[in-house]
Amino acid sequence: MSTSVAPAGPRALARRRRWRSAKRFWQRYRAHRAGITGLAALVLFAVTALAAPLIVGSDITSVTDAPGAPLEAPSGQFPLGTDRFGRNLLALVIWGARVSLLVGLLAAVLSVAIGAVVGITAGHFRGVYATVLMRVTDWFLVMPTLVLAIALATVMSRSLGTVILAIGVTSWPTTARLVRAQTLAVESRPYIERAKALGGGHWHVMTRHVLPNVMPLILAQTTLMVSSSILSEATLAFLGLGDPTVVSWGGLLQDAREAGAVSAGDWWYLVPPGVAIALVALSFTLCGRAVESALNPRLGASR
Rank of each mutant, 00 (worst) to 15 (best):
L165E: 09
R194W: 05
I164H: 05
R180N: 03
I192R: 02
I192K: 10
S171R: 14
L184D: 07
I192D: 04
W172S: 08
V179P: 00
S171E: 06
V169S: 05
R177A: 04
I164R: 07
Y191V: 12
T175E: 06
S188N: 14
R177Q: 14
I192N: 06
L184W: 00
A185M: 03
R194A: 12
I192V: 15
E193K: 11
S188G: 15
R180D: 04
R180E: 06
T174L: 08
I167C: 02
V186R: 01
I164C: 05
P190D: 13
V186I: 15
L178A: 08
E187I: 15
E187H: 08
A181Y: 00
I164P: 01
G168Q: 12
A181M: 02
L165T: 14
S171W: 01
P173H: 07
A176W: 06
L184T: 13
A176V: 13
T183I: 03
L165N: 00
V179D: 04
I192H: 11
Y191W: 12
T175H: 05
V186L: 07
L178Q: 13
I192S: 10
Y191I: 11
T170H: 03
T183C: 02
L178S: 06
S188R: 12
T183G: 00
A185G: 14
I167S: 04
L165K: 02
I192W: 07
A176N: 13
P190K: 04
T183S: 03
T175S: 13
I192Y: 06
P190G: 01
P173K: 09
Y191H: 13
I167M: 05
S188M: 00
T175Y: 09
T170K: 08
E193T: 14
Q182K: 13
T174H: 12
P190C: 05
V186K: 07
R194C: 04
A185Y: 01
I192E: 07
V186T: 15
W172C: 08
